[in-house]
């Protein structure tokens, strides 16, 4: 695993209330890895811990949260115990991030040129004028017309799609090795979203960039990603190559998620709905956290949380049905549940 660009080993990040009485396990024992130039999709519903995971990698967690365990290996270094000053040299330089709302991530009082050039001045000590010149090239590289005029404009003079490209240009300014995009296209129109995803692809190809897409949208994963990690209640419940996971999901949650999206290509009267709600992260059930909503749950699921079973190289699931001894068939689980009940 020495040549992995990024690998997370059993990373946990918890939010702890002031009195220390409430612990929210936002990210719990997450193990993931990513090669250079690869695209990883992290999918989950709100509250599944996917955004906290991104902040954990960048060590940008809010005060109440801390990394309580695990290692985050990036280019051979452990980010978890890096001093804050060194961490600042990683962020924006070797790992960049794009957030959901471009209006919130741009400063309305500075010109586009200042903001695109800022990482260059901070990380590379570029002069104001050379940063400005390179900003023009960057604006051009995200396919914005007439970069010479745009560079001196302010964020309010641009459309939402253009602003999100500018945010992309800022992210790319120091040629990072890894770009983390947290719901980068949710506020964009369909055709603008397609343009933006296209652009990210191209930037990735030309710069050999690794991408992490954090999204709730399985369509984006299907379009963009090589690898997929599905998060539920703070844990990665299933991961593997995208087309394998889409074709043969192992975890009942993944299966249900895929069944719940309407498809253009087939006519279905009913979508597979997942009943109930995700659990409270401060008060997780004893067994598997999906057991209460799972159509295939049996007695063992209620009492014992399944470990991460590796089913084939690069493919794993946290589900008893994926355990090597139990084959993924509900029939065989019935005697198990009986014996556990008696």
């Amino acid at each position: 695993m020495a040549n992995k660009l990024l690998s997370l080993e059993n990373v946990s990040a918890h939010y702890v209330s002031q009195q220390g009485t409430r612990v929210v396990r936002a990210v719990d024992e997450v193990t993931l890895s990513l090669d250079a130039g690869e695209t990883l999709g992290i999918v989950g519903e709100s509250g599944s811990g996917k955004s906290t995971l991104a902040l954990t990698i960048l060590r940008l967690l809010p005060k109440a949260a801390r990394i309580v365990g695990g290692r985050i290996m990036f280019e051979g270094e452990d980010l978890v115990d890096k001093p804050a000053a060194e961490m600042r040299r990683v962020r924006g330089k070797r790992i960049a991030m794009i957030l959901q709302d471009p209006m919130a991530s741009l400063n309305p009082l500075f010109t586009i040129g200042d903001q695109v050039g800022e990482p260059l001045r901070v990380h590379e000590g570029a002069s104001r004028s050379s940063a400005w010149q390179r900003a023009i090239d960057l604006i051009k590289s995200v396919r914005i017309a007439s970069p010479q005029t745009r560079v001196a404009q302010f964020p309010h003079e641009m459309s939402g799609g253009m602003r999100q490209r500018i945010v992309g240009a800022i992210g790319m300014s120091c040629e990072p090795r890894l770009l983390i995009a947290d719901e980068p296209t949710t506020s964009l129109d369909l055709t603008i979203q397609a343009q933006y995803l296209d652009l990210l692809r191209e930037l990735q190809r030309t710069h050999g960039l690794a991408l992490i897409f954090i999204t709730h949208n399985l369509g984006i994963v299907a379009k963009m990603c090589d690898q997929l990690a599905v998060m539920y209640a703070g844990r990665v419940v299933e991961q593997g190559p995208v087309s394998r996971v889409f074709s043969q999901p192992l975890h009942p949650y993944t299966k249900a998620l895929l069944g719940s999206i309407p498809r253009m290509t087939e006519e279905r009267e009913q979508l597979t709905a997942i009943d109930g709600q995700p659990p409270d992260l401060a008060n997780l059930p004893a067994g598997c956290s999906f057991a209460a909503r799972c159509p295939a749950a049996f007695a063992r699921c209620q009492v014992e949380a399944p470990p991460d079973f590796t089913v084939e190289p690069g493919r794993s699931a946290r589900c008893w049905l994926a355990a090597p001894t139990v084959h993924a068939s509900i029939d065989q689980t019935i005697p198990l549940s009986r014996s556990a009940a008696s």
Partner: peptide, 23 residues
């Protein structure tokens, strides 16, 4: 163009149709 810009429901359905340009 609009339906081509819609996201695929399976990775095997990725379309290579050119993306509509402009806003």
């Amino acid at each position: 163009a609009l339906f081509a810009a819609a996201l695929p429901s399976h990775p095997d359905e990725r379309s290579d149709e050119p993306v509509l340009q402009g806003e």
